[in-house]
Design a protein around this nucleic acid. Sequence first.
DNA 1: ACATCCCATGTTATCGTTATCACACCGGCA
DNA 2: TGCCGGTGTGATAACGATAACATGGGATGT
Lengths: 345, 345
Amino acid sequence: MTSPSRSFPPRPVSKISQSDIAAACGVSEMTVSRVLRGQRGVSGDIAARVRNTARSLGYVPNRIAGALAGARVPLVAVIVPGMSNMVFPEVLMGLNAGLEGSDLQAVLGFGKYDTATEAQVLAELLAWRPSAVVLTGLEHDDTTRAMLARADIPVVEIMDSDGTGIDGVVGVSQHGVGVAMARAMIAAGHRNAVLLRSAQQGDRRQDSRFRGFEETLRAAGVPVLGSLSYNGASSVPKGRALAATALSHWPEVDFLYCTNDMIAAGALFALQAAGRKVPEETGLAGFSGLEFLDGITPRIATTDTRRFDIGRSAARMILSRLAGAPRGAREEITPRLDRGQTLRG
Amino acid sequence: MTSPSRSFPPRPVSKISQSDIAAACGVSEMTVSRVLRGQRGVSGDIAARVRNTARSLGYVPNRIAGALAGARVPLVAVIVPGMSNMVFPEVLMGLNAGLEGSDLQAVLGFGKYDTATEAQVLAELLAWRPSAVVLTGLEHDDTTRAMLARADIPVVEIMDSDGTGIDGVVGVSQHGVGVAMARAMIAAGHRNAVLLRSAQQGDRRQDSRFRGFEETLRAAGVPVLGSLSYNGASSVPKGRALAATALSHWPEVDFLYCTNDMIAAGALFALQAAGRKVPEETGLAGFSGLEFLDGITPRIATTDTRRFDIGRSAARMILSRLAGAPRGAREEITPRLDRGQTLRG
DNA sequence: ACATCCCATGTTATCGTTATCACACCGGCA
DNA sequence: TGCCGGTGTGATAACGATAACATGGGATGT
């Protein structure tokens, strides 16, 4: 909206339009439009002729004109925080898979873990009058909510299902993930847990996960020893360093609950380097179910949040909303707790 | 183009348009349009009034109408094969970073490693009359080329720079990557190489990489012993299995050149499991520079193709083309060969 | 044979914005 | 005084497609 100096060459001209086809075939534009959209009520003879002409002329439909004329805009605005790990790429693959077969196209924006940026990006995307919106998480700007209310289109919030959404919600209960892992840990006989967490501001999902974990442990009378956090992006070396610190700080620790699998992998290496038997002396668990962990021995316990399925469900929810289903659908994706080989027993 | 049953609710109505703002301010639509686009030639008084009214009414511009009326479409069509590993997410992050500051927005499509699908997706995206196109690789359908020729907009082909492109090209020489790794291997004293490769049909980039590798070894009088391939997506376990097979098949092997780091990680585990000292007895190398490898010891030799930089350069190339630079720019991104700790010496 | 209905096709208006040209109005200069 | 150039603002016509309605003619029914 604020480009001071736009010195761009004129738009490419001399495009083929439906009227060119109409002229070439000796029919009206309307007939061409009908054929190209696969509407019935056009004689097979003319339809074939129109299709051939369109192909031979290299006609590319102009969605812009179509959309303005009142046709639905086959776009879904998708805002994810970023793509620095495999989480959102997988969600997007699922979304795409779920959209396959419909003519809907995802348009991507990055919210950068910041609700103000998200609002800005949303405004940008809404300018295209998409048919639906997919947002990440349940926390949003007031501006965002207001825009969505005015837009009055299906909205699906993904990833997190702890709380109430604007419209549809597809996600896992992060709180539940923490609770389940705490129970698994206790059942396996571990007692002294330390959390390795990201210092990322406002990572609500991490927060509720750890809250569920801590509450459950406290209720069972085995509160966590403490937690350490790191700044910036996750990486294996960071996990390693963090775990090493944890070991020296709380020698009695016998379980490391890591905020993701990357950190957990590093923690595993640190435990091995420190000569701690895993899981006999010290167990650990991560979060996410990133594929690359498949190859590490022992296999790290984790919670797979089925990101592909989340994306696909979101897509399906959008399709059914557009087909007339009521607002406010919720779908809980049941995370899969994988005990791996880093929990005792 | 062929949705048999479209029963969608009518488009959301009651939107605020420029004419509402015009009416509220007592000026013409044209004046509103000028203000909102930041054109000069409107008195500051009116401009401020218009902007305030727009804000308070919750006006969201309609790019569709604007685009149809002749304004540039601030969209860049981007087609990547998929997102099953971190390669393309990183490219996209770079692209996004490079586009930041301009008003250009990337719209993503998946080509699925198939030129026919690519052509289809391209048609879909061109229907939105984007201002530029980014494609992956240099190999494309005739349909694709024809469409691009007609569209007459900047095109940038990324990743691969072995060959001639349609317009701009940003990438690394895969052939050069193979050559460099072969030289490094020879210099390190390895002699009996085996290739671990994906059976993915038509992966031109892998092919030229390995070709460069093989040619260089042959010229040096130490041809590769052989190669093994796997089907489907890469994973650490597959690398492990493949490497195990290689060890039993060619016991004299002393170097495994893997098509990517995931496979290389698996191969490393296989070597360790077989009791082979790395790199003394057997060295290995991967390809890509995926971040998660940072934590594995020994650090695996690899070639970092600087995917983020590729994306960013592509973005910059597009911006300069749109600003008037001539067609056919080329930018060679120099890959970074990381010897890690799995090459002797 | 005549009214009726349906099917294939055409006509007209419209979507919201921007390009283009036209028009006042103002100050300066000869 | 009259002409000129600039500067704000408005009127009008696209842009390319689709919705909604109109039309003509053949098949159908009685």
